[in-house]
Design a protein around this nucleic acid. Structure first.
Lengths: 212, 212
DNA sequence: TAGATTGTTAATCGATTAACAATC
DNA sequence: TAGATTGTTAATCGATTAACAATC
């Protein structure tokens, strides 16, 4: 396990945002930027930007700043976007279908290779050019196609069993929209939780208490 | 502005999760729990739970623990879930429609009252029992119905103008799925960002570096 | 060379954890 | 009363910010 394995999650969570801002700057034709100017555009401190980047290497140049194209590439590499990971999506309800249709997995280091649902009535429906498969075929599909990542868009009740099954099949990471909580049973599995309900409640609190 | 306005965001972000766990415990018929037992179920320290709760008041009882129903209610009140906020959703693409159909706004302190899109071809389509309205009518609709919150499900390009318009119309909080960044132009507006692309890139990094 | 800006160390700030007296 | 567990203070840990020497 290399040096980058002990980078703090605070830093890692900021990397995609740097990547996005640098991408936008790239497109606007600017070729270099100082940590100070980037900090103003992003609403951070220049110090934090320099600290963050120096976790991974010295990408800047004294007296000059950072080369935008180069830094954008570096961050993309750090994030692992060029190393494509195969993804299966479990749960083809509204949310699952929206993600399948709407997300550009390709630009983020992923390739969606299969969509599954336990509801027989959905089997065979076409979403983003691929048929929804029944979860009965999940084992076989994974053994053949070796996905590394799964998106969970199903109710809490079903999520635990599917997660256990998928981990046994070699899935290394989950994009988890369900309310199933991996942390107790599988503390070492990589999970990125997206709890939309929690997010909405946080918003509720802030509107209530911080709203002008 | 009351005492709760200087609660740290770390604490606030944990409240919805407490609320969910307590709701589950409630349904399983347990009536009391100690911080130690809750900490084991949630994968936190007991100390953190007690610290968090004591930001808002002493809800426990020495030698006994916490009454689950009571604590669940208290946290609901703290989150402001019983004070319903009217919501408009802007952008009825895949994601917008999925959220409109899939989210139980009601259980989280919100009521969806209108769905808008700038694409004339969508106008009049029914989503969750209500017609998609054209954004031309947004001003009038807001003046009549006084929503306090907006969900932004549109591309970055359109988001800035709509956000500015909505703020002028009295919108106090945004659930922002767009890539528009409020922090520089509107640092004091309440915004809950859900950047699905960023989340996916974070997952990419972690699969790459932390995967066993 | 002089000016600018990084990389990096040190100082500060905030969040988490540990400890324990208060008390049910 | 004895045991359990909170509320709260103190200690630790980690993240952010400030400062500045190195250097382009």
């Amino acid at each position: 396990m290399n040096k980058s394995s002990n980078i703090s999650t605070s830093v890692i969570k900021r990397l995609p945002r740097y990547y996005r801002f640098l991408g936008d700057l790239m497109q606007s034709g600017i070729s270099r930027i100082s940590s100070r100017e980037l900090s103003e555009r992003m609403g951070l401190t220049a110090s934090q930007i320099r600290q963050d980047l120096n976790c991974f290497g010295g990408f800047g140049q004294q007296g000059y700043g950072y080369n935008i194209v180069q830094l954008h590439n570096e961050i993309g590499t750090i994030l692992g976007l060029d190393n494509v990971k195969k993804v299966v999506l479990i749960g083809a309800g509204n949310l699952g279908r929206a993600l399948a249709t709407h997300m550009t997995f390709g630009a983020k280091g992923f390739q969606l290779i299969g969509i599954f649902d336990s509801k027989p009535s959905l089997t065979g429906q076409i979403v983003r050019g691929m048929p929804i498969r029944h979860t009965d075929g999940l084992d076989e599909f994974c053994r053949e196609n070796l996905p590394q990542v799964a998106v969970l868009c199903l109710p809490k009740s079903g999520a635990r069993d599917i997660a256990t099954q998928l981990i046994a099949l070699g899935i290394k990471g989950f994009w988890n929209f369900s309310h199933y909580d991996f942390s107790v049973e599988f503390p070492n599995i990589v999970v990125e939780n997206v709890h939309l309900g929690d997010s909405l409640m946080t918003l509720c609190y802030n509107v209530e208490h911080k709203g002008k």
